[in-house]
Design a protein around this nucleic acid. Structure first.
Lengths: 193, 193
DNA sequence: ACATCAGGTTAACGATCATTAACCTGATGC
DNA sequence: GCATCAGGTTAATGATCGTTAACCTGATGT
């Protein structure tokens, strides 16, 4: 009972295909074929093509926020530690799920209205999580600037899935972490307490 | 003779529409209507819908590279100064042409094959421009990592056009410059020589 | 006066696509 | 043994879209 396999297979292959060719560049026939079934069989698992995208994007936004909150809690009041945790988590997720990251910020606007609203809410909360820590770190920072800074950091971290895989993931992970922390004005690694 | 007005109007409105709804989300009828003409009249100015996108993207890639080279030359051997010049230029362009930036990294793959190749070449050269300066600044840095760092910086700088305009452009400009320089490990403003 | 032509127009064509309809089939509970 | 039903199939439908065709019109150079 633990394997609604088809459904998950569809979500996974859809992520790959959407990432490679864009939401509008993939037909339901393409998507079906890539799953070994064909065309309209998808409608036995999802209400529409948009529903596939909607489930994909809401679930990753939820997960990003959920684990993000966990990392902040784990830092227990130290904003620099919280930001290091947030950066680590975001890098880990982005490198582990490159297609999802690509789809998330490319095909966002192809969502149906209600799902778009839901994703926007989740993303706003995630931005707020980062912005709060940034403001705790530098007291002079106003909220809009802190939010803008958080979004710029996401841009940095989300950009690399698109790029070539010319360097190994472990090196990329450290490069991105260091750059993000540098951008945010947080001192990088120190003592693991 | 200095005003091929319609053509430029089409390119400008196409940039806005493509940025808002994506290349596939805009029909030629939409685009024509937004220009005050309608539908197939576009084909008097462009060979195809893809050709509009192609001209848009190649011209901005060319301009980005051209001025980038100029800024590097102006720094005359000082890599930190060159990077400050590159960051300034990129921020200026990104904030001045937000729709173009959005289209450039969202609808890249909708280009016809030859234009895609041309844009890729121009972007590779632009990345190389940044990577060279980064390597001149920190001698231990290998080329692939330098290129990855440059692309991450673009991600940071290109992300903000998408975001809300909650803070004034002048503040955003300074925030982005500071973050980009921080990410790249370049000391921010000093003496204007 | 007139041929040319740039820059419009509307109508028609041919693809492509998401979605629905109608039908099949094998397992499963009773 | 049999009704149910999940999960497939192919065929049909209706819309949208890029592109082409055929036609119109006003300015312009000669």
């Amino acid at each position: 009972m633990t394997e609604p396999s088809r459904r998950e297979q569809i979500l996974a292959t859809a992520a790959d295909l959407f990432a490679a060719r864009g939401f509008h560049g993939v037909s339901v026939a393409d998507l079906g074929a890539a799953c070994g079934i064909s065309g309209p069989a998808l409608y036995k698992h999802f209400a529409s093509k948009q529903a596939v995208l909607a489930e994909m994007l809401t679930s990753i936004s939820e997960r990003l926020l959920e684990v993000g909150r966990e990392r902040v809690a784990r830092a227990d009041g130290d904003p620099a530690a919280a930001l290091r945790g947030l950066v680590d988590w975001h890098v880990e997720f982005a490198l582990g799920h490159r297609p999802l990251i690509i789809v998330q910020d490319r095909d966002w606007e192809s969502l149906p209205e209600d799902a778009r609203e839901q994703v926007r809410r989740l993303q706003r909360a995630y931005v707020g999580l980062w912005a709060d820590q940034l403001r705790a770190l530098s007291p002079g920072l106003d909220r809009p600037s802190a939010r803008a800074a958080a979004q710029a950091a996401f841009g940095l971290l989300n950009s690399t899935p698109r790029a070539g895989h010319a360097i190994p993931d472990s090196a990329l992970r450290e490069l991105l972490s260091a750059m993000a922390l540098g951008a945010l004005g947080v001192a990088p690694a120190e003592l693991q307490r």
